[in-house]
């Protein structure tokens, strides 16, 4: 009795194996597609903008003449923004994470806050812009200042830093805190001296990633009315300011009239990407160097 037709099997086998091989190439191609586009994007921006970056461009003020235009104001504005975001989100973000992980009783309230944070992370950034416009710029009459922009951005990235900090706190092994309690430490002493120092590298990694999200965001800044005009350099929290993404935005819009502005925008993008690259590298270094495994 013939159970199998060997020729038939081999014929089908061949086809199945070939399809598998071909699809494998297609899948690999899809994976590489994104990376290739990324490479094109970076190459294109470098090609367009690198020649425009010089000392004058970095330290100059904005100018109506594109040949003399500089981005010092935008760089300072972005740094001020970072300062506000770091202070506000680190304090509130870590505090909220400690509460949710270590103090909150498992129950309705904790569930509510947790669900709420998850949902906030999915709210479009422009909606935060509208909240900032209504609450900070108009209601609290801050105007389009560093403080208003910083607080808006802080609210935007807060869910990211809370979730990252929670994960960091959760990763601290129980035997460490139990040893601390065993020595007679109070809960807060344990948090302060044992849990936080252990978790802080991971928390900082998350915080830096959140920060890099904040400095790349443009939409909330447009909505709260951040200009890209000839304004004095920001020197404090209550000064008006512009930021790198805003500068890119306005120069890209100008590019449809005068094509040189596209090069200026590209040059500004290089600076912004460089800043993001430094931030992300720092995050990776902190993670690799200080993160303990138990």
């Amino acid at each position: 009795m013939n159970y199998m037709d060997q020729a038939q099997v081999e014929k089908r086998m061949k086809r199945r194996v070939t399809t598998n091989k071909m699809m494998r190439k297609l899948f690999l191609g899809s994976t590489l597609f994104g990376l290739i586009v990324l490479a094109i994007l970076i190459f294109r921006v470098l090609y367009q903008g690198i020649a425009w970056i010089d000392w004058n461009f970095l330290t100059g003020t904005l100018s109506t003449n594109f040949e003399n235009a500089g981005i010092m104001g935008a760089i300072l504005g972005t740094l001020w923004l970072m300062l506000v975001v770091i202070i506000v989100t680190l304090a509130i973000g870590i505090g909220a994470a400690i509460y949710l992980e270590l103090y909150a009783k498992k129950g309705k309230l904790q569930e509510l806050i947790q669900t709420n944070i998850a949902n906030l992370a999915g709210v479009p950034s422009i909606v935060y812009g509208i909240l900032g416009l209504t609450l900070f710029v108009r209601l609290m009459e801050m105007g389009s200042t560093v403080l208003a922009g910083g607080l808006t951005m802080s609210l935007l990235v807060l869910p990211i830093i809370i979730v990252a900090s929670q994960e960091a706190l959760r990763a601290v092994p129980g035997f460490l805190s139990e040893a601390s309690y065993g020595m007679g430490a109070t809960k807060w002493q344990t948090v302060q001296n044992i849990i936080l120092p252990t978790a802080i590298p991971s928390i900082l990694t998350g915080a830096i990633l959140a920060l890099s999200r904040a400095i790349g965001e443009t939409a909330p800044l447009v909505v709260i009315g951040i200009p890209a005009l000839l304004i004095p350099f920001p020197g404090g929290l209550t000064d008006r300011f512009t930021a790198l993404p805003m500068q890119i935005y306005y120069w890209t819009l100008d590019a449809s009239l005068t094509s040189e502005y596209a090069n200026l925008a590209a040059a500004t993008i290089i600076i912004l990407l460089l800043l993001l690259f430094i931030l992300n590298s720092t995050a990776i270094i902190i993670r690799n160097k200080y993160q303990q495994r138990f």
Partner: peptide, 12 residues
């Protein structure tokens, strides 16, 4: 790719 600011994609 997900970490590139959207304004850069807009320019692109």
């Amino acid at each position: 790719l997900a970490g590139i600011p959207t304004i850069v994609y807009g320019f692109f």
